Simulated assay, not measured.
Amino acid sequence: MRPVIPEPEDPLIASFHAASGRRVPQAVTAIENHFSPDETIRFLRGLVASGHPQAATLLKARTLAEVLAARRVQPFRRTPITPDVSLYGADGSPEEKTLIVAFGGVGGRLGLPVANVLQALDAERVDLLMLRDPDKRGFAFGAGSFEPDLAGIVAALRARFPLRRYRRLVTLGFSMGAAPALKAGFWLDADRAIGIGTRRSNDDLMLVRRCAVGPAFDPFCECLRDRAHRGLLVHADHCARDVAAARRMEANGAGRRIVFRCMNDHNLVARFWMMGELRPFLDLLVNGRMTLDRRAGQKPLVIGRTWPPRLRAGLKRRLAMVRG
């Protein structure tokens, strides 16, 4: 069967074919940050069929090779909202799905190319709205051309997307995007807000340097502690910067800490993907039964060292012990 190649006028495809030298990896990164699994497969098959000189090199990348070799391709379709905001969804009623509003890290991704993350989700149960901040300023000045600041992003999410039609609403962020995801989850009254590898903002450093600092209001403070917030602060116990940031945010009521012992990875998403266990890792964070009300004064949930054969059962057993 002859492969169907993405439309040639797709700006990401056009940029790749126009790139040379050091711009080629940048063009590939842009494709990885945006393309759904199906788009990724069609792109790679098209390169192979055309005899493109970069095809063999790209197929050596594990992230791309994994999508191409997948036995089951999750049928997500990409709907561009702006150059830095994309909606990934498949057939099905929102009333039967969870909407994950995702805030990318510095590289514009959730620790992995979006196709690999989507392959670890169930298209029948989940839609993903992916936001990226090309300015790498923690969404303080919006997501590219999508709104001028984080408060504007939250307002636009309410106005432009049918959030309340979904069965559940979850915000999820990695690294630079973790704190914005936790804040957005608070303002949107999400069913769950997840920050993986939370990092503190650099607003204080920007002020010292007399640089612009985006408008902000931090909802994690004493004055708002009476409002319920179902947040998770996810980190490895040997990643010092993540531990410090999570403890500080926990003290301010940002969520409950989920600590993975005997790990030092900032990027837990990539770690569990390398272990072949990204799907259960994400499923447990998004759907695991946990008491998340920050007013409950709960202790961190510490998950001991587990290896791939025992990981799924071990995590389910530990998280199921705490009923929500």
Rank of each mutant, 00 (worst) to 15 (best):
R2W: 05
V4L: 13
S15C: 10
A27C: 01
A30K: 08
S36F: 00
P37C: 01
P37D: 03
D38W: 01
T40D: 00
F43K: 08
R45I: 10
L47G: 04
L47C: 02
P53R: 11
L64D: 03
P75I: 08
R77P: 06
R77Y: 06
T82Y: 02
T82W: 03
S86M: 01
A90H: 10
P94Y: 06
E95L: 09
L99G: 06
A102S: 11
F103Y: 12
G104S: 04
L121S: 13
L121N: 07
E124V: 06
R125L: 13
L131M: 05
R132C: 03
A140N: 08
A143E: 02
S145W: 15
E147Q: 15
P148T: 14
A155N: 10
A155W: 08
L157Y: 00
P162H: 06
P162A: 09
R165C: 12
R167D: 14
P180I: 05
G185A: 02
L188R: 00
I196W: 13
R199N: 11
R199L: 07
R200I: 10
S201Q: 11
S201C: 07
S201H: 13
N202Y: 08
D203S: 14
M206G: 00
R210Q: 01
A216E: 07
F220N: 04
C221I: 12
C221H: 12
D226G: 11
R230A: 15
L232V: 00
L232M: 10
V234A: 05
V234F: 06
H235G: 01
H238L: 15
A240E: 12
D242L: 01
V243K: 00
A251R: 10
R256D: 06
R256Y: 05
R257L: 05
R257G: 04
N264P: 00
H266F: 04
L268Y: 05
A270E: 04
W273T: 05
G276E: 08
R279K: 11
R279Q: 11
L285C: 03
G288V: 06
R289A: 11
R289Y: 11
Q298N: 14
P300S: 09
R312Y: 00
K316P: 05
R323G: 15
